[in-house]
Design a protein around this nucleic acid. Structure first.
Length: 569
RNA sequence: UGUCCCAUGGUGUAAUUGGCAACACGUCUGUUUUUGGUACAGAAGAGUUUAGGUUCGAAACCUAAUGGGACAACCA
């Protein structure tokens, strides 16, 4: 990966408490002025918006201080991990706009070194092999209010520990038969210091090391060393790891004490920050996986998912997500961010970037009775009033057009600026029309609307000066292209679906989170390609779905336009 | 009935480290507009969880209370 291409975007990042800490370290010349961070996902799931916050934080730190950021897979548990995730994670990080330092890193590349260090700790009398099973060890752990008791195997000789550990590695014992533990303090008020696990036996092939290993290091005996080996200066993680920090430091201190080659190396510093929470959504990999496995959504990239791939498919841009990550800030207090902030970020970005098009998502036919039967003409519309350089396009206009069912009302209040019998309004970019009548079926549902147009009011060329308040979008019936449009709403109808004592998050699934409608869209959309983004005039922002084709157009609604009219009602 | 962390408008963050609380989102008003969008102008909304203390002066420092969170996986 090329470091220089890392800043194709150089947004000013809001300052936060981590900057202050790094500034301090730099002043003390702790790492010779270097700043190297890392994003260390476990390849056991897809990245979500919470990871995106962490990614933005770590890479922006690197950018700000002229350092780098590694992408490192924390692949120490073969039973949960898979290459599928390794691939999707790299794709998502790149898509977000970040380039990691050099080649991708893997914790599994350091297994030999971890093993050598474990041997050193055993020799120093700081680690021992325990023959007990998980239950027994858990019982001896004590509780947060009671100290633990020492394992009967705690005081084995160095020779015996060495022998046993080597045989663990050699595959002499079955999965789970023995573990390697650090010898620290069973009565520590910090549970993580009560002789924590270092290695366990797992007879399972690893996606990168194959069958080379049957013992795998636990997080605490891996993460700090990974940072240390790579020369990470600041190891940024979430709040729940705060209690692990003494252990993170302890292992590295032992290693530096026991290993001449690493004595002089500066210990990386762990700094914790609060993870992102969003209302009306869940953010745990386990729950997201549950949504996928129970077919509540259509996969990890379902546009209702808070995953990076879901947001991408929904029509979010990397810029909007980066901007959002900056706006939520970085602190060490738990909080729940309103999804409205995320939505405002994507609206802000798309508003200036994306072309406006005419699309009718709930079509109602309107017949212009005084417009010649076989006549058609082309009218010109501006592509984006926010950006003149995007030019204009021509749209066919004819006697029959589709308008939005919502844009007509029989008994309209005076504040209704749209169409009602006897009222005049403008078909955007075309003519002013006056509604003359409607046709209903037996059930009273309106089937057609009739209107007359005023040829003197053609957009651009008009000499008519009277004020026409209402303007609606439309699509020529004869030229319209059919499209499937997916209207998404929040996946949950509860603000905090994962935080209820007596209920499961699945109890709060919004049954109307997806509504599929048949729309009529302007012909220029016929060849729109996957991920193309548009503003459907007066409706919202839409993105072409990956399953779309010119035979069957599919659009996903990214977000609706702000709507101060429906609020009034 | 432990240890540690946290506490600022509805929400998320600021406050140059002790000098009369700012920004964004949201909400509400207007103006412009061939999008009830955007833009622009403006408004409401916290006196910083509470009680003590230190100080000429506290959102910031100290103590306690209250509330929230983390910690007892051969997960990360």
């Amino acid at each position: 990966m090329n470091k220089d291409s890392n800043d194709n975007h150089s947004e000013e990042v809001k300052s936060n408490f981590i900057h202050l800490e790094i500034d301090k370290d730099l002043e003390e010349n702790k790492n010779g002025g270097a700043v190297l961070t890392r994003f260390p996902p476990e390849p056991n799931g897809y990245l979500h918006i919470g990871h995106a916050k962490s990614i933005c934080l770590n890479f922006s730190l690197a950018q700000k201080y002229g350092g780098g950021c590694n992408l490192r897979f924390d692949d120490t548990n073969p039973v949960k991990e898979d290459v599928e995730y390794v691939d999707s994670i790299q794709e998502d990080v790149k898509w977000l706009g970040f380039n990691w330092e050099k080649e991708v890193k893997f914790a599994s590349d350091y297994f030999d070194q971890f093993y050598a260090w474990a041997l050193l700790l055993i020799k120093a009398g700081k680690a021992y092999v325990d023959d007990q099973n998980a239950d027994e060890i858990a019982k001896q752990k004590g509780t947060p209010t009671e100290p633990g008791t020492e394992s009967p195997f705690r005081n084995r000789s160095v020779e015996e520990n060495l022998d046993l550990f080597e045989r663990m590695k050699a595959g002499e014992f079955p999965t789970g038969a023995k573990v390697l533990r650090a010898k620290i303090d069973m009565s520590s008020p910090n549970m993580h210091l009560r002789d924590p696990y270092m290695y366990r036996i797992i007879h399972q092939a690893h996606h990168r090391t194959g069958d080379k290993w049957c013992i795998y290091p636990i997080y605490d005996f891996a993460h700090g060393q990974e940072d240390f080996i790579e020369g990470i200066t600041h190891s940024i993680c979430t709040l729940e790891f705060k209690v692990h920090r003494p252990l993170y430091d302890w292992f590295l201190d032992q290693i530096r004490e026991a290993d001449e080659n690493w004595k002089a190396k500066v210990r990386p510093r762990q700094i914790e920050f609060a993870r992102l929470n969003l209302n009306y959504t869940v953010m745990s990999k386990r729950k997201l996986l549950e949504l996928v496995q129970k077919d509540i959504v259509e996969g990890w990239d379902d546009p209702r998912m808070p995953t990076v791939s879901g947001l991408r498919r929904r029509g979010y841009t990397p810029e909007s997500i980066r901007n959002f990550a900056d706006k939520v800030g970085v602190t060490n207090r738990d909080s729940i961010t309103d999804v409205a902030l995320l939505e405002s970020c994507i609206r802000e970005d798309l508003n200036k970037k994306v072309a406006r098009v005419n699309a009718v998502i709930d079509p109602l036919k309107l017949i212009i009775t005084n417009y010649p039967e076989d006549q058609e003409e082309w009218v010109e519309l501006i592509n984006n009033p926010e950006d003149e350089s995007m030019g204009s396009r021509k749209l066919p206009f004819s006697r029959e057009v589709y308008i939005e069912r919502d844009d007509f009302m029989e008994d309209a209040p005076k504040k209704f600026f749209r169409l009602t019998v006897g009222k005049e309004l403008r078909l955007k970019g075309a003519y002013a029309i006056t509604c003359t009548g409607i046709k209903k079926n037996e059930e009273g549902v309106i089937e057609e609307i009739y209107a007359t147009y005023d040829p003197e009011t053609k957009s651009g060329a008009t000499t008519v000066t009277r004020k026409i308040k209402g303007v609606i979008h439309w699509v020529s019936a004869k030229h319209a292209v059919d499209a499937e449009v997916k209207l998404y709403d929040r996946l949950y109808n509860h603000e905090a679906p994962a935080a209820q004592k007596d209920a499961d998050h699945l109890d709060f699934i919004n049954p109307d989170s997806l509504q599929v409608v048949r729309a009529k869209v302007e012909p220029s959309l016929k060849d729109a390609k996957a991920l193309d983004k548009f503003q459907f005039q007066r409706i919202g922002y839409f993105c072409v779905d990956k399953d779309s084709s010119s035979d069957k157009l599919i659009f996903n609604r990214t977000v609706a336009l702000k709507d101060s009219w429906s609020k009034k009602k």
